Computed example of a mutant assay.
Amino acid sequence: MVFNLIQNSFGLDISEKFWRAVQIKKSGNKFKVVSFAELDIPEGIIKDGKFVKEKEAIELFKKLLDSAEKKISSRYTSVCLPEPKTFIKVINITYPKSKNIMAEVIEESKKHIPYPLEKIYLDWQFVNEKDKSKIIVGVCPKDIIDNFQSFLKKVNLMPVVLEIESMSIARSLFPLTKPVESPVMVVDFGVSRTGIFVYEKDFIPFSLSLGISSEDLTSHLMAKLKLKYDQAEEAKIKLGLDHARALGGLRKVLSEPLKKLAEEIR
C-alpha cells in the first residue's frame, strides 16, 4: 500500500527562491515525466526553511499547480526537505550484540547530532544489510517538518515521503543496481546556497551546505561590471564560463568568487 502511494505521488522541491513539481509514471521498464511545473518565489515567503507568509504561499502553490503542462492528479507528494536544515551522518553501533537497536541508535546519535534530541525527528537505516555495524542517520528539526506538514495539509496534500535533498539527488544520479565503489563528490550549485555531499557504496557518509551561491555570482557581476540585476543574470546564463564567448571575459570576472568556493570545498 505504501509503495503504491509513493509510485502515485508527485515530487515537490520547495526552496526560498523556486518551487518545482514533477509527476512521473512507469512506462514498461522505464519512468517518464508526465507533468512539470516551476515557479519563481518572491522573497520572504519562506525564511530559514519555514513558511512565514502562509496565505501568500497557498496562493503561490495553487499558481504552481495551475501552471503544470498537464494537470497533476495526485494529492500524495514526496517532498525534499531544505538541505541547510537537515543533517546526515554514518555512525557505528554494536549490532548484533545490542538487544535494543533503537535505544543504541539514539544514544550514539547524541554524540554526532548538532541539535537536542527532543527538538528533532530522526530516521535511520543500515548502510549494508550484511554488515549491520554501520547505520546512516537522517535528522531534521521538528519545527521545520511540522511547518511543512501544516502547510501541505492546508493545500490538501498528503506527504508520503519527506526526504533529505542529498539522498534524492544521489538516487537520481547513481544506479541502484551497481554500487559506486570509489567516493564521488557531488556539488549542487544552487540559487541561494551550495550543497556538497560524498557518495560511496550506496550511502552518503558526509554532507554540508555552503553560503556561496549562484546569486552571489550575479551580485559580483553587478558590482564589477556595473550591470543591473537582469543584465547580470542574462550574462551569467548566456556567457557563463565559456572560453569562446566574449573572449572568456566573464570567466575572468567570475574567477574570484569561484576560487573562494573551491577553497571552501577543499
Rank of each mutant, 00 (worst) to 15 (best):
N8W: 00
I144G: 05
F197W: 07
T177E: 15
I265N: 04
I24T: 15
E163H: 09
N29S: 14
K119Q: 13
F18V: 14
V90M: 02
I212F: 13
E54F: 06
S192R: 08
A232E: 02
L157H: 05
D146W: 01
D242V: 04
G240N: 00
H220L: 01
E108F: 09
I144T: 07
N147C: 11
I164F: 09
A262F: 02
V161L: 12
T194K: 13
V90C: 07
E200V: 15
D146A: 05
P175D: 11
I58K: 09
V79K: 06
K119F: 02
L225F: 06
L210H: 10
I120C: 10
I93M: 13
V22Y: 08
I135F: 05
I106D: 09
D216I: 12
K53Y: 05
I24L: 14
I237W: 02
E108M: 13
G44D: 07
I164V: 15
L152T: 10
D242E: 05
L39T: 03
S192M: 05
N128R: 05
I237H: 11
V22F: 08
V186W: 05
E83Q: 13
V155P: 09
P96L: 03
L157I: 08
P175S: 11
P175G: 12
F151H: 02
Y95S: 14
V127S: 02
I46Q: 09
Y121L: 10
K130I: 09
E200A: 12
V22G: 12
G240R: 02
F10D: 04
S150G: 02
P114I: 03
M102S: 15
